[in-house]
Structure formats: C-alpha cells, structure tokens
Nucleic acid binder design. Sequence first.
DNA 1: GGATTTCTTAAGGTTTTTTTTAGAAAGTTT
DNA 2: AAACTTTCTAAAAAAAACCTTAAGAAATCC
Lengths: 227, 227
Amino acid sequence: MKLLIVEDEPNLLSVLRKGFTENNFEVSVCLDGETALEMIQNNDFDVVILDVMLPKVNGIEICRRLRAIKNFVPILLLTALGTSENIVNGLENGADDYLVKPFKFTELNARVMALARRANLDTQKPDIIKLEDLEINGKTKLVHRNGKPILLTHKEFRLLYYLAKNKGTIVSRNQILDNVWDISFDMNTNVVDVYINYLRKKIDKPYNTKMIQTIKGFGYILQTENE
Amino acid sequence: MKLLIVEDEPNLLSVLRKGFTENNFEVSVCLDGETALEMIQNNDFDVVILDVMLPKVNGIEICRRLRAIKNFVPILLLTALGTSENIVNGLENGADDYLVKPFKFTELNARVMALARRANLDTQKPDIIKLEDLEINGKTKLVHRNGKPILLTHKEFRLLYYLAKNKGTIVSRNQILDNVWDISFDMNTNVVDVYINYLRKKIDKPYNTKMIQTIKGFGYILQTENE
DNA sequence: GGATTTCTTAAGGTTTTTTTTAGAAAGTTT
DNA sequence: AAACTTTCTAAAAAAAACCTTAAGAAATCC
C-alpha cells in the first residue's frame, strides 16, 4: 500500500515513516505543500497523511485544490490541538478524516487502514509471499523454508521482503539501498553485499536450490535456480 | 530519453551517471557551467540536472541565461542543505524543480520522470525491444531469443540494447564507443569488435538467422539477414 | 549498567568481466 | 594474385565486481 506523509516537523516525520514502514507500507514523504501537490498528481498513493500547517501551501488548501481537479485520493488531516475550526474547514474542503495532535501511532494507523478499507482497497490480503518452499509473512515477520522457521534480523527481513516483492526481476544495489536502507547516496558502502551474504547463509546455504542469485553487473534476483 | 547532468563533485557525478544509465537514459555529463551552457545549446536534452554550486557559471545563472534566450529545456536544480534562498532564487530564474542534497536516487529519478511527463514526453512505454524472435527487456535486463533466456554481461547488454535501439540503421564504431563505452574518440581500441564477437557467440551462433551484420567500412547493424 | 544482539565498515581473497594484444581470416585495391 | 586494409578470434593481462570474514560501533535487551 502506497502512503504519502506530508509533514514539515522532521522528528514527527521520521517517527511516522518508521512506523508505517514497519507495517509494510511503501512510504513516501515530503516536507511542503507545493511538492506534495505535485507528488500526489504524479503518483498513485492509496492514502495521504497531511499536516494542516505546512510551508507554501497548507493542508486544507491542498485538499481543496485536489478535489477541484477531481482527485479523490483518501486524505487524513493532522491538526494541532485547539484549532477546531480547522477541522470543519478541512472536512468541508474534501478531507476524509482528521486526527488531533498529539496522537498515538496505533490510532493513526487504525484510521489510515479504515480509510483504505473505505476506498475498497484490499487491506486484509494475507501479505504472504510464497516462492517455491519459501514463505515470507509480512504481517508476523516470520519466514519459513520447507516448513521450518528461519529467524531473521530486522534488516535481513526487509531485504528479503524487498527481493520477494520484486521476485523475478533484477534489483540493483541502488534500488535496494533506497528501499531497504534509507540511505541517500552513500556512494561507498557494501552493506548490501554483506546482508545478501547473511541472508544466503540463512535461507540458501542449508538447502539445495539457491534462491538468491547474483547477476553480475546488475544486482540480485530472487528466483528458482533453473529457468 | 536524453539527460544532461552538470555536477562538479566526481563521486556524485559518477553515481548519478551510473544510476540513470541503469534506467536506460542516454546520459551526458559535464563538470562546469560554461561547458554546460554550450552543450545545452548544441544538443536536444529532454531534462537537465544542474548543481547550483558550479565552477565558472553557477546553476542559477545558467537557468537565467537559457531562459533569456528562450531555451525552455526542463531544469532540475540540486542545492545543498540550508540554502533555501537559493531555491527561491533558482525557481525565479526559470528552474522547474529542485532537490535538496542529500537525496535518495529514486526520489531524483521520480522527479526527473515528472519533469519529462510535464514536457509531454512519452515516459511509460514498456521498454521492450523486439526483433524477430529476439526480445530485449530494458527494465528487467533480460534477453530472450526464441523464448530461451540468454545471459549477457553488463557491457554486452548495453551494446545489444544500443544496437537494438538503432535497429535497421548502421551504427559506426565511434557511435558505439560514445554511447556504450563512455569514450569519445579513443581511436586505438578494438573493444567494439571484440564485444560484437562475444554478442554473436551468444545471440547468433546458436541460431540460423544472424542478426548482427557487419557493414564494411561503416560499422554494424542489427537486422534480419535478408533485405 | 552490563550483556547481547544487530549493524556497519574495511580488508583480503576469489571470481568474473573488461580490455588489450596479436595473429588469422576476409575483403579490397591495384 | 600480391599487397593492403579491415574485421574477427582467441588468449593473456588488467580491472572490476563480488564474497567472506572479522572487528568495532551502535542499538537493544535484561
């Protein structure tokens, strides 16, 4: 599920990102209203979380403009306490829900899920990826191969999950760095190699068919050996 | 899609080039503002990525001068953190978008695509080239002939992809060197010949119709044998 | 606050890819 | 047909990409 978070307070933003990433959302973020508008129009987000107070174009204005051009992406507004006129205003301008700061993450999460549900998104597909005898459960974060449980660390899991999401296509180290590590261009690291090695030890070494393949010069691919 | 990257920091430049090349852009690069201006006027780039801090002529000045002579090539500015006055300045001088360093590659990529889309470029054709029973997928980097997968190395793939992009026209060794190797005019190498040979072994040798043809005195062409 | 786990970096070793070299083959010109 | 140019091929040399390990840093757990 693709989620956009528009929030200019860096601490809150980073907490939100982390939280939703943990729940297997594909999270994009941005810090101001103008960029938000553009991103929303150029992408297919399932839900947008919008702070009301934003630089350049505020959250309510974003709602208004989007609805004016018939964009009905589900929007949840975040408002500060004691600004109840904002809430009415926001809902009148096309927001679907709101939440008053400060809030608990689980509450926000629940509301986002509710919005997605309302938009008829398939929110409860099991989120299990199967590939041969390998099974990855995005919900419980458990991995099994051949019925046997495999314990992965957090990073290992995210890497495997990303590879699995893209099963059958080659993913480059850059793509992996972007999506699994939230690194911006550390141009000199081999973390990916190292983690691929960790993963291999756990999910490939003990078995005959190796699922993680190196495509030299391009990156890695998760697939069955022959093909 | 033709892209110009103007950046004086060699590491960043090389990562950017690699990243965009990976995504099948035709990438040109340059390291200073003066050369950039010249290149932009003499070529038809679809998008220009411009660092603000540049030797000789800075990025914002480049924008200004280009717009002054009615050149409206889409420009994306790269600015360092904490220089927000630069951003306003840049946008006022005709830049179309900006990105603050450090950034994730995917984000830059998304914005470049957005710019291209805005300029009405066809950004979402599937990027699969078919020629008889030969199929080249620029996205997955996989090549099939007659349904069978063929494993190519990175350079082999790029060479084949370039030939395929120009299917039906002769490409000279120099053109190939320019576009596949990033060499301009090293007239003392026969890498191209050697790689053509490698390619032939993989995609032609095992089949009856040979697709890579030599045109003596000119270069090579990818096409069906007869005709 | 100490112990444990996880993450990151760096270095050495291995494999694969890329480039160069040089001689053979094929085609052109005189 | 001999001399010359261009192209092809194989193999050696060089470079790059990748793997593995180990050790220190950071985060987490108890």
